[in-house]
């Protein structure tokens, strides 16, 4: 037992303390959090926009006339193409295309990765939101319009808050996935949490400690995120009783 403990101690020292290698993990964690946080925000913005375009076309496209119909038709086409391309290709490939092809001239890897993950997540958020919007009773929309609210006001004040509540668990799922998916950021020269752990492993030739540490840090982040979403869910449920 004491031999095992001694072993553990020396491994711990070798992988984290010696040469302050734990700071690598801290820096990696910072990069991961930065990318994940801004990608979530970008994903929500894109997702809501695409979901509103898709569901308004599905529910009201036929009623539109003239220029509005033409514009909505094009927007809907763009949205559908976006969903097909993003959901049909792996996120690592999208990330590498963004870094090595589209923004080949830029070296701001974190920014490019944030965009790539945000654009990727937006597609999934869009479909989650669309299912939420579709799940709100049509009478809610009619009640809003009959009071004199225009389409966007009705969506904003009445439909989207209810849709959000309905899809919160699915949305939390997507955010957890996104957080963990950022672990492929190392493909485009970013030293994120995963890459930092791997760098330690390469330096110390000891795999157990750094990889388990990385796994634990992800786990703690996901647990905290789940807890926060739980609080939000309970708050939104006040109207149900």
């Amino acid at each position: 037992m004491s031999a095992w403990l001694e072993d553990f101690k020396s491994e711990f020292y070798l992988n984290f303390i010696k040469g302050d290698k734990w700071l690598w993990l801290v820096d990696g964690l910072k990069a991961t959090l930065k990318i994940a946080f801004f990608a979530v925000i970008l994903g929500i913005v894109i997702g809501v926009l695409v979901a509103v375009i898709r569901s308004s076309w599905d529910q009201n496209g036929k009623k539109l006339r003239g220029g509005a119909k033409f514009i909505m038709r094009i927007l809907n086409f763009i949205a559908k193409t976006y969903l097909t391309v993003i959901r049909g290709t792996p996120v690592v490939v999208q990330l590498m295309i963004m870094y090595y092809v589209i923004f080949a001239s830029s070296t701001n890897a974190i920014l490019i990765a944030t965009m790539a993950f945000g654009i990727n997540s937006g597609a999934y958020v869009a479909e989650i939101f669309r299912s939420g919007i579709m799940s709100v009773d049509k009478g809610q929309f009619e009640a809003g319009r009959s009071l004199g609210f225009n389409y966007i006001q009705t969506m904003w004040y009445i439909v989207i808050p209810q849709a959000l509540k309905n899809v919160l668990p699915a949305l939390a799922n997507e955010f957890i996935t996104l957080l963990k998916e950022t672990s492929v950021a190392g493909y485009v020269t970013i030293t994120d949490l995963t890459r930092a752990g791997d760098l330690i492993r390469g330096k110390t030739f000891s795999a157990f400690m750094p990889l388990i540490a990385v796994a634990l840090i992800y786990l703690v982040m996901v647990v905290i995120l789940t807890w926060l979403v739980g609080i939000l869910e309970r708050k939104l449920r006040t109207s149900d009783h």
Partner: peptide
């Protein structure tokens, strides 16, 4: 003003 069969109050 419109009043609906299913009330359509805003539940949130």
């Amino acid at each position: 003003g419109t009043v609906f069969q299913q009330f359509n109050l805003f539940p949130h």
